[in-house]
C-alpha cells in the first residue's frame, strides 16, 4: 500500500502520508481515516458486535474500504471470511459486480483491464450505499502487484507481465481518487472528453 501511495503522489496532485496507520474496527481513531485498506489471506476472525456496529456507521456515513484478497483463490478461506463479516456489518446489502462503465474505472485513468498479482476474477465487486460504493472488493491481490522489497525490487512476479502490474497501480489510484472525488468524473463537463478517448 505504501508503494501505491508513493505512486499516487508521483502521478497525481494528491498529498498523502506514507506512514500507514493500522486501526482496529472498534477504535475511535477509525474515523480519522475515511479510507481503509483491508488485505489478507486465509481465514480471519469475525468482527465483534461493537466492531460490526462501528464499521456499519463508518461505511454508512462516508467511509470507504478496499478489501484485497491475497489468497488468489475465489471461495478460499479469506473470501469466505470477508463475505461472512460483510454480511454482519451490512446485513441488508450484498456484494455485486461493479459495472465496467462505473465512474471508478475513469476517476483518473481510463481503465478497461483488471490488474493484480493474479487475475482470478474478471471484475471488482462492491457494496453500494445509495449511489456510492462503500466497499470495493478484489481477489486479484492488488497489494502483491504493488509490493517492493527494501531494495526496491518487486516482491512478486506477475503472471500477465508488467502491463498487469501497471494496471494494478492504475486501478489502485482510481480507487483512491474515487474515494476522494466520488462521481466527479461523471459531471457533464467531462463526458465529451472521455467519450472521445474511449472511441
Amino acid at each position: 500500500m505504501r508503494r501505491l501511495l508513493w505512486e499516487l503522489m508521483q502521478r497525481t496532485s494528491i498529498e498523502a502520508s506514507l506512514d500507514l496507520t493500522a486501526v482496529r474496527a472498534a477504535d475511535p481513531k477509525l474515523f480519522r481515516h475515511p479510507f481503509l485498506y483491508w488485505a489478507g489471506s486465509g481465514a480471519v476472525p469475525d468482527f465483534s458486535e461493537e466492531e460490526a456496529r462501528r464499521l456499519r456507521r463508518y461505511l454508512t456515513f462516508g467511509g470507504t474500504i478496499l478489501i484485497d484478497s491475497a489468497d488468489g483463490e475465489p471461495g478460499g478461506a479469506f473470501d469466505v471470511s470477508v463475505r461472512r463479516n460483510l454480511a454482519r456489518v451490512l446485513p441488508r446489502e450484498e456484494l455485486v459486480r461493479i459495472d465496467n462503465e462505473h465512474v471508478l474505472y475513469k476517476s483518473f485513468y481510463l481503465v478497461d483491464h483488471q490488474g493484480g498479482r493474479v487475475l482470478r476474477v474478471p471484475d471488482l465487486e462492491g457494496i453500494f450505499l445509495e449511489k456510492r460504493i462503500a466497499v470495493i472488493y478484489t481477489q486479484n491481490d492488488l497489494g502483491g502487484a504493488w509490493a517492493r522489497d527494501s531494495f526496491g525490487r518487486w516482491e512478486y512476479s506477475i503472471d500477465g507481465g508488467e502491463r498487469q502490474r501497471e494496471m494494478a497501480f492504475r486501478l489502485g489510484i482510481n480507487v483512491l481518487m474515487y474515494a476522494l472525488c466520488l462521481d466527479y468524473k461523471e459531471d457533464l463537463v467531462h463526458t465529451p472528453f472521455i467519450l472521445k478517448r474511449r472511441r
Partner: peptide, 23 residues
C-alpha cells in the same frame, strides 16, 4: 460545477494522454 486539479504540471505522466480521464 466542480473543477478539481487531479494532476499538476510537476506530476509524472506514466500513461499516454488517451489513457487518462483528465480534461
Amino acid at each position: 460545477i466542480s473543477f478539481f486539479i487531479l494532476r499538476s504540471t510537476t506530476d509524472l505522466q506514466k500513461a499516454p494522454q488517451e489513457e487518462l480521464a483528465l480534461i
